[in-house]
Nucleic acid binder design. Structure first.
Lengths: 189, 189
DNA sequence: TCCTTCTATGCAACGAGTTGCATAGACAAG
DNA sequence: CTTGTCTATGCAACTCGTTGCATAGAAGGA
């Protein structure tokens, strides 16, 4: 179960509550491992009862109290063990690609709008990543000699940036292809 | 449920049995939508009882009989409806990226082997895609004017090729980064 | 001859992920 | 003054995906 390990990594980078983790999974760590708050709360509860993490209640003014989790020795060991186990190369799940192949049995041109919507979403993500890179790693505000953890966060972010750039170029290719095939070349077997 | 739609697309491209579909999901269509045979059999059964697809038993010599499925009018309508619905841009699940960030709390150098293993797997996939592209789309054996369905299969395959190339370059970046951080820069908070 | 691989289909149990809903106080905008 | 958003946590039901196992005949290699 990789969510467990993603949570361990995130809590080692900085302790936090379920709610805070959920927001991190909407940003930073969620760029390559998505999770909803329900999933996170459920797994946190199990991890606490397994002794991987510990919780302390933080009383707050003007907002509800929270339970701040941090990683215990058992959690550290569990993460270490997982890091030394081999994992399978990812199997991709790309719904849009299914749609593109399916468009052969419908109207290819009708898919252009949808692909453009995706293109915009990826352009936004790329802009977001680039802003984060400048803020945390390459800009004047960033700490000059990065420590190991930051170097590793940076290389992961570079992966996200490369992915978004590649995807944008590909979506342009898709749009051009869909435009070349008009509704007139629609296949009706 | 996108597996259902992936199956509809695959069966429209060519009717086939559950077993044949499972093999297609190990190749071609599985490059962007993975599925095991158990999943496929279960969904085929439901799709048949929902009337989306029809089955006929094909008696075979020297091997077990098979049930060949093909898409009915209801299935075609269902696919069409889905094609016109918007979908969310994919949320990524990249386990290796979690490991890379986690390496900050262990030995970064110990991860190099694992990353190299992934690199090889991606290099193999790229070679496989390129061979398929040559065979089906760009080589001398390929049909000269491609029809719409083939153009669309080709653009999806180009996406796979771009993805693998990008991933290879990124994994090289990751390996170089892990090498720069030795075990001596291990972080022990 | 035995062992493995290929074709072909399927059940059962479990683990992971999604969707909808509920609570509850603070604050801001209309 | 009501509606909506933000912080904060959680249950219940459901769907989806994974793992292990089972059957069974044919073909091919050790």
């Amino acid at each position: 179960m990789a969510l467990e390990h993603a949570i361990l990594v995130s809590l080692l980078e900085r302790p936090g509550s379920g709610y805070e983790l959920a927001r991190r999974f909407d940003r930073s760590i969620g760029y390559f491992w998505a999770a909803t708050h329900q999933q996170i709360y459920r797994v946190l509860k199990r991890m606490e009862s397994d002794g991987l993490i510990g919780a302390r209640t933080v009383v707050q003014q003007d907002r509800p109290d929270k339970k701040e989790y941090s990683v215990g020795p058992l959690g550290r060991t569990a993460l270490s063990r997982w890091l030394h186990e081999p994992i399978e190369p990812e199997s991709v799940r790309h719904e849009l690609a299914v749609k593109i192949r399916g468009a052969a049995f419908d109207d290819p041109a009708a898919l252009i709008q949808e692909v453009e919507r995706h293109r915009e979403a990826h352009a936004d993500r790329l802009a977001h990543y680039l802003a984060g890179e400048l803020r945390d790693f390459t800009g004047p505000e960033a700490p000059a000699p990065l420590e190991a953890g930051q170097e590793l966060q940076h290389v992961v972010l570079r992966g996200g940036i490369a992915y978004e750039r590649m995807t944008l170029a590909w979506l342009d290719d898709v749009i051009a292809t869909l435009q070349r095939l008009g509704p007139e070349r629609r296949r009706r077997p």
